[in-house]
Design a binder for these strands. Structure first.
Length: 851
RNA sequence: GCCCGGGUGGCGGAACAGGCAGACGCGCCGGUCUCAAAAACCGGUGGCCGAAAGGCCGUGCGGGUUCGAUCCCCGCCCCGGGCACCA
């Protein structure tokens, strides 16, 4: 701001016309490499990142919002003197490319790269300040080869597994899905088809090995929204309890050597176990019932369960079905024989697929017991339950049913529980610990923790993805591709329009075993695209490295990401997978931190008339059209002004026009001030304007720091309004033109992160500076100058505002009170009454309590 | 059912820490300029009563704490999201 404005400006006052300069500056900035990230050990760094976009081609308002937020943050930090990394790239593998290819008879690569070009052009047109040299595209072999390398490293660490189990099959995408990718009422996250269950052999990453750490470390993320952390914690679903071993009896009812282990969170209720359940898919079901009189009824339950899976879960609870297997197991705490049933409400996927049923304490067991007439002996009774009078201190079982209409799972007194009778029962109770310790001492049980989180199924039966680098050898079994043989290149000559995948491509899958040299077959599944997006932010730190995944020193400089911005829809999916990858990278020595994203901002959706914009609804507002009419700056400012970033935003054309007018007013003010002759200095109004200038700079700074871009912009509007009022009302011979110029420059600097093109045009062409506004330091402010010398106090009498008085800012409370009492209206309300209390809030208000 | 958010003028939203509710913008109304309109600029704009001064009411509903509650507590209603037979 100390530069001498150049006097040979040719541009005289002209109206705001964004089209005359926006693209000009975009070209200049790129030529000047204004936004290149530079590792500077002498400066603090900020890594600002928005979520990896899928190259769908057209940009939509959601993109505009996501990337505008990130751009303001990146530009602001640059002006604050940080070394900033703000990269972009494309999550370029995935199914839509295949679908589009089939539809338009083109290759997925053609479609994808074409879309990337179009989208990059749109991003450039929006003026987003990326370091384009760091662009990564996940379908480039230079990128995905490192994804294969990661697979091999995970393999070495025992984090890769191939196993057969019931998996989610999406009939729409014709591939399997990970659990996280089945959302809502059992539908595919991408195409919303109802997902089916299939028994298949698939590849997994063992994310469950990190379940505890993924849960615990949520507490190290104060910069994440609680909502996201809660969702992840629920997804991981840790429960504490015990494993209990039940001895299996043979068909004749005699004990055998065999045991079945169950997981329970309530070992204190073991004395209330009146039956035992197996999941329909449990392998023992067949063993127990084959050839017996029970087989038919049991088979009916098994069949019914296999029909209902996945689909019938959609609404409410499924009907509980069960059948007795004819077998018994022995309850280790009391030696009692308990009948084994099969029921559809027991899940094979959770715990051991077997459950001890305690109907008095578990609602599902209660319902089942009532339906099939099984006993419900009470064992944990609430302190105010009338039953307690009868059962308190009774160790033997004297009661096998309860007068209840539902199970009781709260805390209470243990009854009918042998040696444990009288202890406190309930979740995390002394009774639970005592029973578990007793079992552990006999080797019939132990403390245990269970998670809802399942291993991550990463194989996909699709073409357009990263090939899994494994070879199936008939002699050696599963053999990983040697590191030296990477990359396994995705062949381009697959005829996708015929629906071919790698499994239809003998030139790809016919190979030799790297171990024995014999004929072998390549794995033809590709990896889940979420594996690509789980580490791209590492690659940005060293995007062009051809000899290693990245230089760890560069990662140490830039990572972790200081501010991550993206949609809430990835609360579990991408954000959980990325946390997992980061922890494994740390254990591999590639990173010295445990969490990739220090601060997370989840932005809201952009809607139209309360509905999500979609082509099928025909309510899409195209960003390109708005840019063509109002310019990129107006669109950026509008979308940041209309709502706080984490809330949904409803599109309003009038709102955008209002912002365009605001930018026009700002433009006019700065151009008028820039052109006026220097004149007199100072009058009463100048002091107020100067104060407003300092107040607003402070306010805008605070607001950006807490992502309140809407109120930051409001404050700028306030300053502009004040500046315009002054400009209009102050007499020309006393108007402080130096101050006006300072205000004009301040406003230009403050708006620069939001409206970068206009700010640059004003700064360089109108205000006459040589260097870019985006290289200027952020304006400073003096809180003392922002302070008014007079402060207005509201005066309340019995809680109602009865007057306002102005007093000097440094007045003591006695002075303030006296001024308040002196106010005419206040005096009226105080007249003839007794003041019992006076409260003075400095700088704000005086409150009289009267009787 | 459980767990998170949220409910403020005609609309989007503001009030950061219990202290003047409605900043800023949109819309609307009135005015200036114009032959006229648009644009631009200026002024007004929570509701009710009142000529005005002023008064009363008002942040989903009902209670409570407090000199004072959009904010804290208790009990509800509605909207959005997540999870949902997880033993």
């Amino acid at each position: 701001m100390c530069e001498t404005p150049s006097r040979e400006r040719t541009l005289v006052s002209r109206p705001y016309d964004p089209h005359s300069f926006e693209e000009k500056w975009q070209a200049v900035w790129e030529a000047e490499r204004l936004d290149a990230a530079v590792e500077d050990p002498d400066r603090p760094k900020k890594y600002v990142l928005e979520m990896f976009p899928y190259p769908s081609g057209d940009i939509h308002m959601g993109h505009v919002r996501n990337y505008s937020i990130g751009d303001v943050v990146a530009r602001y930090f640059r002006m604050r003197g940080y070394s900033v990394l703000h990269p972009i790239g494309w999550d370029a593998f995935g199914l839509p490319a295949e679908n589009a290819a089939i539809k338009s008879q083109t290759h997925p690569a053609t479609w994808t790269y074409g879309n990337i070009e179009r989208q990059a052009a749109s991003f450039r047109r929006m003026g987003f300040s990326y370091d384009w040299d760091r662009t990564v595209r996940s379908c480039d072999v230079d990128y995905y080869r490192w994804g294969q390398w990661i697979f091999l490293k995970f393999w070495e660490r025992g984090l890769v597994e191939r196993k057969k189990s019931a998996v989610n099959w999406c009939p729409g995408c014709k591939t399997v899905l990970a659990n996280e990718q089945v959302i809502g009422d059992g539908v595919c996250w991408r195409c919303k088809s109802v997902v089916e269950k299939r028994e298949l052999e698939q590849w997994y990453f063992k994310i469950t090995e990190y379940a505890q750490e993924l849960l615990d470390d949520l507490e190290t993320l104060p910069g994440w929204p609680d909502r996201v952390k809660t969702m992840q914690a629920n997804w991981i679903g840790r429960s504490e309890g015990a494993e209990v071993d039940f001895t299996v009896c043979d068909a004749a009812g005699e004990p055998t050597e065999q045991t079945i282990t169950v997981f329970t969170t309530r070992p204190d209720t073991l004395f209330g176990c009146s039956f035992f359940l197996l999941a329909p898919e449990h392998p023992l079901v067949r063993e127990f019932t084959a050839g017996t009189a029970y087989a038919a009824a049991v088979q009916e339950v098994v069949q019914a369960a296999s029909r209902e899976t996945a689909v019938s879960r959609t609404s409410g609870e499924a009907e509980k079905l069960g059948a007795f297997t004819g077998r018994y197991v022995i309850n280790p705490v009391n030696g009692e024989k308990v009948p084994v049933w099969v029921s559809n409400y027991v899940l094979m996927e959770y715990g051991t697929g077997a459950v001890m049923a305690v109907p008095c304490g578990d609602e599902r067991d209660f319902e089942f017991a009532r339906k099939y007439g099984l006993p419900i002996p009470p064992v944990v009774v609430a302190d105010d339950d009338p039953l307690l009078g009868e059962l308190q201190g009774v160790a033997e079982r004297i009661m096998t049913d309860v007068p209840w209409t539902e199970a009781y799972d709260g805390p209470g007194v243990m009854v009918q529980s042998g040696a444990f009778t009288g202890l406190r029962g309930g979740k995390a109770s002394e009774g639970m610990r005592a029973v578990t310790e007793w079992l552990a001492a006999r080797g019939q049980g132990r403390f245990a923790v269970n998670y809802r989180l399942r291993d991550w199924l990463i194989s996909r039966q699709r073409y357009w993805g990263n090939p899994i680098p494994v070879i199936h050898c008939p002699e050696c079994g599963l053999v990983p591709v040697p590191e030296a043989d990477l990359p396994v290149v995705l062949p381009m000559d697959v005829d996708i329009t015929k629906g071919e995948t790698l499994a239809d491509h003998p030139e790809f899958y016919n190979t030799t075993c790297p171990r024995c040299g014999g004929a072998a077959r390549r794995e033809t599944d590709t990896m889940d695209t979420f594996t690509c997006s789980s580490w791209y932010y590492f690659r940005y730190c060293d995007a062009q490295n051809s000899s290693a995944i990245f230089d760890t020193a560069k990662v140490a400089y830039w990572m972790p990401v200081d501010q991550y911005i993206g949609g809430i829809e990835h609360a579990i999916l991408h954000l959980l997978y990325s946390r997992f990858f980061t922890k494994v990278f740390r254990d591999m020595g590639l990173a010295d931190f445990s969490e990739p994203f220090t601060n997370l901002l989840t932005q809201g959706m952009v809607k139209k008339d309360g509905e999500t914009m979609s082509k099928s609804k025909g309510n899409v507002v195209a960003p390109e059209e708005m840019v063509a009419r109002f310019g990129a700056d107006a669109l950026r400012v509008y979308i940041l002004f209309m709502a706080p970033p984490d809330k949904d935003l409803d599109w309003s054309q009038e709102g955008l026009e209002g912002i365009y007018r605001f930018l026009g007013r700002l433009w006019r003010y700065v151009t008028e001030v820039a052109e006026q002759e220097d004149a007199a200095t100072g009058d009463e109004g100048a002091t107020a304007l100067r104060r407003e200038r300092h107040r607003v700079v402070g306010k805008v700074t605070e607001d950006i720091e807490r992502f309140q871009f809407n109120t930051a912009l409001s404050a700028m509007m306030e300053l502009l309004n004040a500046a315009n009022d002054y400009h209009r009302t102050a007499a020309p011979d006393v108007r402080d033109t130096a101050l006006e110029r300072e205000v004009a420059e301040t406003l230009t600097l403050l708006i620069a992160p939001y409206a970068p093109h206009m700010a640059e045009e004003l700064w360089r062409e109108v205000l006459g500076h040589r260097a870019s506004v985006h290289r200027e330091p952020w304006p400073s402010w003096d809180p003392a100058l922002a302070q008014a010398e007079e402060v207005e106090y509201a005066v309340q009498v019995n809680g109602k505002v009865r007057g306002r008085v102005s007093v000097p800012a440094d007045a003591d409370s006695a002075t303030v009170e006296a001024a308040a009492r002196a106010d005419e209206r206040v005096a009226e309300h105080l007249a003839g009454r007794e003041v019992t209390k006076v409260v003075i809030v400095p700088g704000k208000l005086v409150s009289f309590v009267v009787r």
